[in-house]
Design a binder for these strands. Structure first.
Lengths: 239, 239
DNA sequence: AAGTGGTCTAGACCACTTG
DNA sequence: AAGTGGTCTAGACCACTTC
């Protein structure tokens, strides 16, 4: 027989806090009490308390605001990476408020690394976009897009705070034949954590996508770094 | 200017170990030195050392064998959840050795929870399979399959250690129209960790799949719990 | 100025695995 | 029997945020 008393203390604390989350005693976005206060409340040291909190962080229930304390994670956005619908559209469709901020927009040569990834010449011109995307006022995603310049001339003169998907489809009549996607959990680096306003060492979901046109040419290479607790991957697959 | 000396000790240790991994000084599957020994080597306490090791664990480079120590993670298998190819096939195609072990095979009523998930009556008969799958002698995946019994009568008389995909296609002429997939990282529970022979609290990748036939009927519900460091999700998408 | 999270020490005991 | 990982204590100092 397994009795609850035989559990390690940090697991009991973590279960207690999880119950507080499940039953609404802790609300989304709320800041938790200071660590020293919680440690006293649970009758343990900060080390043990943090062990419990780190468990909940790994489960996506809590996150750390850098040097600002522990917070309850927001509701995750559903995301289907197999679809070419726009961020602005699917976030809105979920009753949330999207925002896109363009950090970098450049025209330049692909360079050796991208050339290998996309099977093109190192001096092939590409557009390089780096954008940060928000949901309900919270930054959740860092996105890099590399586009073969020949497919969308004059892209930098277009509005890049909106939907790139829509822009490419309607302005450049783009048709994609297929794409290769890979995704994995990772730890966000210092820079990424800062842009997403979460503590260093927070976990993220990394997704990369290589898109091909009808002639088999690689026309776009995307990299996405999501806040792990802010996204829920769902896919609708045909066939 | 950021100097390396300003980094916290646990980050420097973690980077050192990562370099050991990258440059082959630590080989796949190898056991690391005991914690006390490593702590002395790095001139820190076990607490600090474990902080460094936990970082590498979260990145999928190391794993903990329960009470047996720290080990270098094996090479991950590539897995495309959007395809209906068989585990046995895609693992073999990657030059690895697959094995499937059937833990539970039952014929029973769906029950209320599954009935809601699959949109069927609570007394609808289903086959319930629970299997453990191995790669190169290492258990990496726990798989649950629930199949509407009317679509595959006599399933329990078939060999269940092989490919269910192949069995359904060739023996029952199954055709799937579409499926819904969702996936997320989580922490494996006590039972799952034990079956996968890794320490409690190790992270996993959870994937669920709801499959529909041509008439829109839900015919299969799958749940997969992967060892997080043992799988790499990749997808080929058309359209 | 006070308080907070981030980091770290120097121990300890126990349950479990390994030789 | 010895050694190991898992858990936990009771402190400490610093950099940073908030007031």
């Amino acid at each position: 027989m397994i009795s609850k008393a035989s559990l390690p203390h940090y697991l009991r604390i973590s279960e207690q806090l999880q119950a507080d989350l499940d039953e609404g005693r802790l609300q989304r976005g709320e800041r938790l009490a200071p660590e020293r206060e919680m440690a006293e409340h649970f009758g343990c040291t900060r080390v043990t308390l943090r062990q419990a909190l780190q468990r909940l962080e790994a489960q996506g229930g809590l996150y750390r605001g850098p040097r600002r304390g522990w917070f309850v994670s927001p509701l995750a956005v559903h995301y289907d990476p197999s679809r070419t619908t726009s961020f602005m559209d699917y976030v809105t469709a979920q009753g949330r408020v999207p925002r896109t901020e363009c950090l970098v927009a450049e025209y330049r040569a692909a360079g050796p690394w991208l050339a290998a990834k996309m099977q093109l010449a190192a001096d092939e011109p590409v557009y390089w976009l780096q954008r940060r995307r928000w949901v309900d006022g919270v930054p959740v995603l860092l996105e890099n897009n590399v586009l073969r310049a020949s497919g969308c001339p004059g892209l930098l003169g277009q509005p890049l705070e909106g939907s790139l998907t829509t822009l490419l489809r309607e302005r450049y009549d783009r048709r994609l034949a297929h794409s290769q996607i890979s995704l994995k959990p990772l730890l966000l680096d210092e820079q990424q954590s800062e842009w997403l306003d979460i503590a260093e060492g927070s976990s993220g979901l990394y997704l990369q996508r290589l898109c091909f046109d009808e002639s088999g040419l690689a026309v776009e290479y995307d990299q996405e770094h999501w806040r792990a607790d802010a996204v829920q991957v769902v896919m609708a697959i045909n066939g």
